[in-house]
Amino acid sequence: MLHYTMRRILAMIPVLFIVSVIVFMIVHLTPGNPAFLILGEDSSPEAVEQLEQQLGLDQPKVIQYFDWLKNIFIGDLGQSIYSEESVTQIISERIGPTFSLMIISILLTLIIAIPIAIFIVWKRNTFLDPLFLSGSLLGTSIPEFWLALLLVLGFGVSIPIFPVAGYIPLTDGFLSWIHHLLLPSIVLAAVEVGLIARMLRDSMLESVNQDYTKTARGKGVKERKVLMKHVFSNALIPTTTVVGVTIAGLLGGTVIIETIFTIPGIGQLLIDSIHRRDYPVIQGVILFIAFIYVLINLLVDLLYAFLDPRIRYD
């Protein structure tokens, strides 16, 4: 297990390197001059050129990239062009709202998706099964921004139950914290519930008529216990893969949701930085998201060995 873990950690390095190259090229080849945006439309070409020299934007792109890459290896993602703060510090200040939103969203998803999938497998030969398939397809097809605006209009304006903007830290009170995050979390969870429930249902159906389940029924074990003890446990590995991808994908989903609900997280930071052409922050945020994505995939692979003792990586 240790050797496999070390190999996977080393394999993350080329992945992050490729991501860094792509991100740098996209950011620096996009039209727009940060120096011009900082100084304004009335700025003179001489002032813009002088600011470009101060920011290092007059250097060749190759030199700019390797300077940035060199700093990454010592844990320095650079400084924001606008605030002159450390990019690492800026990201650390925005992690809390984003991770809070992700945690609540994935908990809501699992609390809803797992019981639904088990119930549908239990009632697999009834009209509920095709109804579930239609509902799961509809749920995964709904655009997040449209559902978010619909819920804001319904439960933030027409029936003002939830706040539609802002964020309250957990340190200021659990109820206030979850009250502000529940509505955007429902939006993120609604899109993922159908996918995870469908995957779990399909995986359970593959095991429901296997020989070991027939043997358990032949011994007089009740159907409910067969589903929970034998079928559900064997369906965890493929479902865990989908859950891992979902958790990683939530980082991308929060970009839209945080903007709509004005949550000061990583997603809104990325959007604001793109508008300002704040190159170091854009590069740092995307690289951080890529790192979290590959890290979650690694943790999911390692989790397989705990879910199924037959799996041995060494």
Rank of each mutant, 00 (worst) to 15 (best):
L2M: 11
Y4N: 12
Y4A: 11
Y4G: 07
T5F: 15
R7K: 15
L10F: 15
A11Q: 15
M12W: 09
P14E: 09
V15D: 07
V15E: 08
V15Y: 14
L16Q: 10
I22R: 04
I22Y: 10
M25V: 15
M25H: 07
H28C: 06
L29C: 11
N33Y: 05
P34K: 05
E41S: 11
S44Q: 03
E52W: 05
Q53W: 06
F66V: 11
D67Q: 12
W68N: 11
L69R: 00
K70P: 10
I74R: 11
G75V: 10
G78N: 04
G78Q: 11
S83K: 00
S86C: 02
T88V: 09
T88N: 13
S92Y: 00
R94G: 00
P97W: 05
F99N: 03
L101H: 08
S105T: 06
I106P: 03
L110R: 06
I111R: 01
I116K: 10
F119A: 14
W122C: 00
K123L: 13
K123Y: 05
T126Y: 00
D129G: 00
L137K: 05
L137S: 15
T140E: 03
F145Y: 12
A148T: 09
L149V: 13
L149C: 07
L149A: 12
L150H: 11
V152E: 14
V152Y: 06
I159T: 13
I159P: 01
I161F: 14
V164R: 07
V164S: 13
A165Q: 13
Y167I: 07
P169G: 03
T171A: 12
G173K: 06
G173T: 08
F174I: 15
F174P: 06
S176A: 15
I178P: 02
I178A: 11
H179F: 13
L183T: 14
I186R: 01
A189T: 04
V191S: 04
G194C: 03
L195S: 09
I196D: 02
R198F: 06
S203C: 01
S203H: 04
S207I: 10
V208E: 09
V208F: 12
Y212S: 05
Y212K: 03
K214W: 03
A216I: 06
A216G: 05
V221Y: 11
V221L: 12
R224S: 13
K225V: 11
V226G: 08
V226I: 14
M228R: 09
V231C: 02
F232E: 04
F232H: 01
A235M: 00
L236S: 03
I237Q: 01
P238D: 11
P238R: 08
T239I: 02
T239N: 04
T240E: 01
T241M: 03
V245P: 00
T246L: 02
I247A: 09
A248H: 01
E258T: 02
E258F: 00
T259F: 00
F261C: 14
F261K: 14
I263E: 07
G265T: 07
I266Q: 09
I271Y: 01
I274Y: 08
I274E: 07
H275F: 04
R276W: 10
R276S: 15
Y279V: 05
P280H: 08
G284Q: 10
G284A: 12
F288W: 14
I296L: 02
L299F: 12
L303G: 10
F306Y: 08
L307W: 01
P309R: 06
R312M: 08
